[in-house]
């Protein structure tokens, strides 16, 4: 038996909306520690890792580890039917291949029950080592989204360079070139407006912009985004979900052959 209750159905809806273009099918692994999902996009260039800790839920019960394979577009269809302030309760048991989403209005006057068919998904699970990164940049998530969208209109790839003074995003294409340089900014009223650059050694890496633009669909989930980089390693783009966990996106770099 699995049962979990979230104060805001809208949170899970937003999470699924932010990843469903990248991965259409995925398996949620449920255990006493929470709900986790890891999946590669169909071209195996990027990877999404979602972690929702059990203590971030209002109620969480998982008698034993349980896998729930879901089509995320179908899940999104159902989650769209939740009212904006509805609570969400998820229920599933191993006896039937269904997960139930219960949407309850704040005054308890409306209770909607949606049952989604579960599916068997065979996918490779990758072990992601806890690595030290050469550079870690935290910046407002809206600023990161603006940068990747703006550069996406110039070129297909972005060259990210981190030095101790700044982080540069550069793109070039048929119409010309663009460079956006962000300096460290610590003296802000709100901590989420900061741009923080932690550099062990300078890095310079190139990535496909369309994936980064896709990752930035998670902007509404967190005011700030953390980008971790090491030479010839996948970049990590992390959105922290307050009090419950994170969504991390990994993207393999482009490397000269």
């Amino acid at each position: 038996m699995f049962e979990a209750q979230m104060a805001q159905a809208a949170l899970l809806k937003q999470i699924i909306e932010s990843i469903r273009e990248l991965i259409t099918e995925a398996t949620f692994e449920v255990s006493g520690t929470g709900m986790m999902l890891q999946a590669m996009d169909s071209s195996h260039v990027s990877l999404v890792a979602l972690n929702l800790r059990s203590d971030g839920f209002q109620l969480f019960r998982a008698d034993r580890p349980f896998s729930m394979g879901m089509n995320l577009n179908h899940m999104a269809k159902m989650l769209k039917c939740a009212g904006k302030d509805d609570t969400l309760t998820m229920r599933a048991d191993e006896a039937n291949d269904l997960v139930t989403f219960l949407f309850e209005s704040p005054g308890n006057e409306r209770l909607a029950e949606f049952e989604l068919k579960l599916m068997d998904i065979t996918s490779e699970n990758l072990g992601i080592p806890d690595a030290e990164y050469s550079a870690t940049v935290s910046m407002p998530s809206a600023e990161f989204q603006r940068i990747v969208k703006d550069l996406g209109s110039i070129g297909d790839t972005v060259e990210i360079t981190v030095t101790k003074d700044d982080v540069r995003f550069a793109a070039s294409g048929d119409i010309g070139n663009a460079t956006i340089k962000c300096r460290q900014l610590l003296d802000t009223e709100k901590p989420e407006d900061r741009t923080l650059i932690e550099m062990v050694e300078p890095v310079n890496l190139t990535f496909a912009l369309r994936y980064l633009i896709n990752f930035s669909k998670a902007t509404s989930l967190a005011p700030s985004v953390t980008i971790k980089l090491s030479t010839e390693m996948p970049v990590v783009v992390e959105y922290k979900l307050s009090d419950i966990g994170y969504v991390r996106f990994y993207l393999a770099p482009k490397i000269e052959d």
């Binding site: 590669m40 071209s43 195996h44 260039v45 990027s46 990877l47 490779e124 699970n125 990758l126 072990g127 992601i128 080592p129 790839t157 060259e159 190139t206 496909a208 390693m233 996948p234 990994y250 993207l251 393999a252 770099p253 482009k254 490397i255 000269e256 052959d257």
Partner: peptide, 14 residues
């Protein structure tokens, strides 16, 4: 820049 690497070349399959 040319080659797009696959993510699975960096992280081993569990």
């Amino acid at each position: 820049v040319s080659g797009q690497r696959s993510i699975s070349t960096f992280f081993a399959t569990k």
